[in-house]
Design a protein around this nucleic acid. Structure first.
Length: 566
RNA sequence: CGGGGCGUGGCGCAGCUUGGUCAGCGCACCUGCCUUGGGAGCAGGGGGUCGGAGGUUCAAAUCCUCUCGCCCCGACCA
């Protein structure tokens, strides 16, 4: 590709709208442009990177035995009503009507459509197993789109669905996808971890998220230094080791704590550590108030809590509800005297003489004990902390931030039941098909790769997903020797590699800056050494420069490609 | 949805407090000269109903009201 003819609008200055490195760089490198909040156009360079990732995905999905399909993006409401998600999915589902006033939605995911397709065609156990995937645009009307391609409303996703006759088959399909995903992200040059993930209302241990390690990641993942335990913090169970206190219970006392709402304020005021305090948080679980109790230095885990309560919706109670239930301003809630169900974290079991709110504005209780109120249920409802031991082996835990680029999930018969997708087994008995679903955010994968691979000069594309492999840079196109050699190299190298040929009549500095910015792995510079028939090979990643004779150029390039992971 | 911030040529911004001399700067773009190893220089030039609507006023980018859009912080997810 000739740069002079290529639609590649690079930006010298930082776009004001971008916060994180990948977003800034994708805008500056002319890969994407925003059309509206969470909606982006892919420019040629950005699309090339996306296509590279897609190609890797296709190869690995096909290798794993999956077959590619393409499903509609516009979907009739009837299907969603049948599965029950027309009501459940909420505002993320973008709904609209056609000219006949029939309801439709834009597909945020495709379980309904694929299950409908399969239920019409699959009749026998002989048709199973089956794994179908597509790479397609999804639309989710996200509450808050963010960070460019990291969380868009419209985004490209690879989604796959497996269909099996029995549990064993479903497990096999699941682990095949696990393997395929590991290969895909490895081939994309990413530093990632597969972690155990929340399985929602279905339960079981069959869900993994593929997390690219990056500080800007929106998820916290926790893994063990000593064993292979790795989980999303939402999921990581806390292995409780209750140490009964040796203190003997003292009588409860009310203390004046004017204007002290937060844990820090109260413990600071009373001069005790946060672990002596018990936080009382009022929630609405499907609209009904409940109180959750965790130690002052612990964080409540809402995913665990909502599973425990078995509710669809769990939200922090609004101020009025808190006031009504506690009779006090927010910040002074406590379990003593509360008339709503109380769920307490396991860590409370061993606690004696702790501090809570007094359900009275500007007052707390000290020396509260479990005998002072009634706990409906003790359970693991907090987030694991670095002080906790690994729940598997007791080893030391490490916490990192991750970007979720893939999620695999065993669905079971959730959709085959609601949509009646059945087959006949060898005995002629009708059974529900067992499903799994598997997603990869394609654009997000590119963004995550950039997040992990950039420097102050720009993107440093991992070779396998680089939009071009070689950046051919003649420093002066008015110099006949340079220009003619460049033209010749452009043609010959082009038979083997993808070459971006910077044939612009620009000063060298401009070209160098752009080359660094867009991050093509190998740069070939034609300049002052050309008189001796030599060119410069520069490796973007290491900044290493190699002088190469023209007649040994191909060989040298091949060596570099081998080195940097072709 | 709650909280915070921002909308001024393509991009980045100043001007707004205290209305008039305010349509301005840098980059980009066009023409010419010159220059060619890390975003050169000189000269000339094009481009903006100041997000939109309404209002106050002799006079509004500036003050008031409404509205639309975007970004950031919290509940979702690839």
């Amino acid at each position: 590709m000739r740069y002079s003819r290529y639609f590649l609008p690079t930006l010298k200055e930082l776009p004001a709208e971008a916060e994180i490195a990948s977003h800034k760089l994708m805008l500056r490198a002319g890969m994407i442009r925003k059309l509206g909040s969470g909606i982006y156009s892919y420019l040629p360079l950005g699309l090339r990177a996306i296509r590279k990732v897609e190609t890797i995905i296709r190869e690995e999905m096909n290798r794993a035995g999956a077959q590619e399909v393409l499903l509609p993006m516009v979907q009739p409401a009837e299907l969603w009503q049948e599965s029950g998600r027309w009501e459940k999915y909420g505002k993320e589902l973008l709904r609209f009507k056609d000219r006949h006033n029939r309801d439709f939605c834009l597909g945020p995911t495709h379980e309904e459509v694929i299950t409908d397709l399969v239920r019409r065609e699959v009749r026998s156990y002989r048709d199973l197993p089956l794994n179908l995937y597509q790479i397609q645009t999804k639309f989710r009307d996200e509450i808050r789109p963010r960070f460019g391609l990291m969380r868009g409303r419209e985004f490209i996703m690879k989604d796959a669905y497996s269909f099996d006759a029995d549990e064993r088959g479903a497990e096999k399909s699941y682990w095949q996808m696990y393997e395929a995903y590991s290969r895909i992200f490895t081939r994309c040059g990413l530093d990632f971890r597969a972690v155990e993930a929340d399985t929602g209302t279905i339960g079981g241990s069959f869900s993994h998220e593929f997390m690219v390690l990056a500080d800007v990641g929106e998820d916290t993942i926790v893994f063990c230094q000593d064993c292979d335990f790795a989980a999303n913090i939402e999921k990581a169970e806390v292995k409780s080791s209750i140490m009964p206190s040796k203190e003997s219970p003292k009588p409860r006392e009310e203390v004046h704590t004017p204007g002290k709402h937060t844990v820090e304020e109260v413990t600071g005021f009373l001069g005790v550590s946060a672990s002596r305090l018990v936080k009382t948080i009022i929630y609405l679980a499907d609209g009904k108030p409940i109180a959750a109790l965790v130690r002052g230095d612990h964080e409540i885990n809402e995913v665990k809590l909502s599973h425990l309560l078995g509710c669809n919706e769990l939200e922090l109670a609004p101020e009025e509800v808190v006031k009504q239930q506690t009779g006090a301003e927010v910040g002074f809630a406590g379990p003593v005297g509360l008339q709503i169900p109380i769920v307490a974290d396991l860590a409370l079991k061993g606690m004696v003489n702790f501090i809570t709110g007094a359900n009275k504005t500007d007052y707390h209780y000290v020396n509260v004990n479990l005998s002072d109120f009634k706990v409906s249920q003790f359970a693991d409802i907090r987030c694991i902390t670095p002080q906790d031991p690994c729940p598997r082996c007791g080893g030391k835990l490490v916490f990192k931030k991750g970007i979720e680029v893939g999620h695999i999930f065993k669905l079971g018969t959730k959709y085959s039941q609601s949509l009646k997708a059945t087959y006949l087994d060898a005995q002629g008995k009708e059974r529900y098909i067992i499903m799994g679903c598997y997603g990869i955010g394609v654009g997000r994968t590119v963004a995550a790769a950039i997040e992990q691979n950039h420097d102050k000069n720009g993107i440093v594309f991992p070779y396998p997903i680089a939009p071009f492999q070689i950046y051919l840079l003649p420093v002066d196109v008015k110099n006949n020797l340079i220009a003619e050699t460049a033209e010749r190299l452009y043609k010959s190298l082009g038979t083997k590699w993808e070459v971006l040929y910077d044939d612009r009549d620009e000063r060298p500095g401009v070209k160098f800056k752009d080359a660094d910015l867009i991050g093509i792995p190998i740069r070939i510079t034609l300049g002052k050494h050309l008189k001796e028939n030599r060119v410069e090979l520069k490796i973007r990643k290491t900044s290493e420069v190699i002088l190469a004779d023209l007649n040994e150029l191909n060989e040298k390039i091949e060596n570099i490609v081998k080195e940097i992971g072709g």
